[in-house]
């Protein structure tokens, strides 16, 4: 770990001013940043501590029936919040599918969104990596790539975003509130993370000095018909190879609204509005779900070690939509997949 100075920001404005420097990094829960510091992947000269900032720890009802989650709310507090469990059980389920109790106790909502990829090459400063050192190349494309992207990747980067929480937030169409030098703005979650393109060093569309202050959930929570199906190499405490967060609204045996997002397959939570549209107005049917899944994967590409994910994702989507339609969400304790 390199040496750095630590500043405890007194308010969001100070944090924003401090964070505007490319040599600065913000710390909240620290569960990802401290790890990256130890690997010398991150080498800031200044670390800005926002963990004590006032006003970012609350979970509040919004005027339009939604919920506003402060950026410093821990993953544990969010997962077990009574309103989240009742109105947004999909979000609670994704949080409990991720990491462990010790990590969720420290990890924050903002930090979860901003965590970096777990690509082996990104984490190893002895290897090239376009995300870590732009222009050096991507060894994952022809290397070990079991955990890598099958959708939306580029020749410059095939890393995936590792968050579970963000996958539910994508399906729920959350809005990320940020505050920066030019004031505050609200960013739809679909526009918060980026695809790698030719600038994989940028994970998000945040501008210099912008600080995440809250995540807002719209009223629609899919509490009756939802699931988070996470497939991984061990049953707990592992990142998703493929995951699906699904939410349906059903009336009279027909699907009136459908949303689903995939984790573990792309540089951001992956949604496909065309595939969702295929489900609206239809009865829940395995054949229909398989066609929608095939549509999502129509441009999928494997790189050898991760090629199995294309079939896995197709089947995971189908199964997740069946679980959601039946109102039988995947348990995050009993890992058997029904």
């Amino acid at each position: 770990m390199n040496r750095f100075s630590l500043v405890r920001a007194a308010d969001v404005a100070e944090a924003s001013r401090e964070a505007a420097s490319p040599a600065a990094r913000i710390i909240a829960g620290g569960t990802n940043l401290v790890d990256l510091l130890k690997y010398n992947v991150e080498r800031p000269s200044r670390v800005v501590d926002i963990s004590r900032l006032p006003g970012l720890r609350g979970i509040e009802d919004t005027e339009n029936g939604g919920l506003r989650i402060g950026a410093l709310v821990t993953n544990t507090d969010l997962a077990y919040d009574e309103r989240v469990q009742r109105r947004y059980p999909l979000l609670s389920s994704t949080l409990l599918a991720g990491a462990t109790t010790q990590l969720r106790n420290a990890a924050t909502t903002g930090g979860n969104l901003l965590q970096r990829t777990r690509c082996y090459y990104f984490y190893d400063p002895a290897t090239p990596c376009n995300k870590r050192e732009p222009g050096t190349g991507c060894p994952a494309v022809s290397g070990v790539n079991r955990i890598h992207a099958i959708l939306g990747a580029s020749e410059h980067c095939i890393a995936t975003h590792p968050s579970d929480m963000a996958v539910a937030m994508a399906a729920l169409e959350a809005v990320v509130h940020v505050s920066g030098p030019a004031g505050g703005r609200a960013v739809p979650i679909a526009e918060f993370h980026r695809l790698p393109g030719d600038a994989p060093e940028r994970d998000t569309n945040l501008q210099p000095g912008e600080v995440v202050t809250a995540v807002e959930l719209p009223a629609r929570g899919f509490a009756a018909h939802h699931t988070y199906l996470k497939l991984r190499d061990r049953a707990s405490y592992a990142f998703a190879l493929v995951s699906v967060a699904a939410g349906l609204e059903m009336e009279g045996g027909r699907i009136t609204e459908a949303r689903f997002a995939l984790g573990g397959v792309a540089h951001k939570p992956w949604r496909d509005p065309e595939a969702e549209a295929m489900l609206r107005g239809q009865g829940p049917d395995r054949g229909l779900f398989e066609r929608a899944a095939a549509h999502v994967l129509r441009d999928a590409r494997g790189y050898g070690g991760n090629s199995f994910k294309i079939d896995l994702a197709r089947r995971a989507i189908t199964r997740a939509l069946e679980q959601a339609a039946a109102g039988t969400p995947q348990s995050q304790t009993d890992k058997r997949i029904q």
């Binding site: 630590l6 620290g30 569960t31 963990s51 010790q102 420290a106």
Partner: peptide, 21 residues
Amino acid sequence: GSCAVLLDGRRVNSCLVLAAT
């Protein structure tokens, strides 16, 4: 998890906590 401690009553991995914070 071998570094687990109770921090303000909650279990955390102490290896990922900067003491100065």
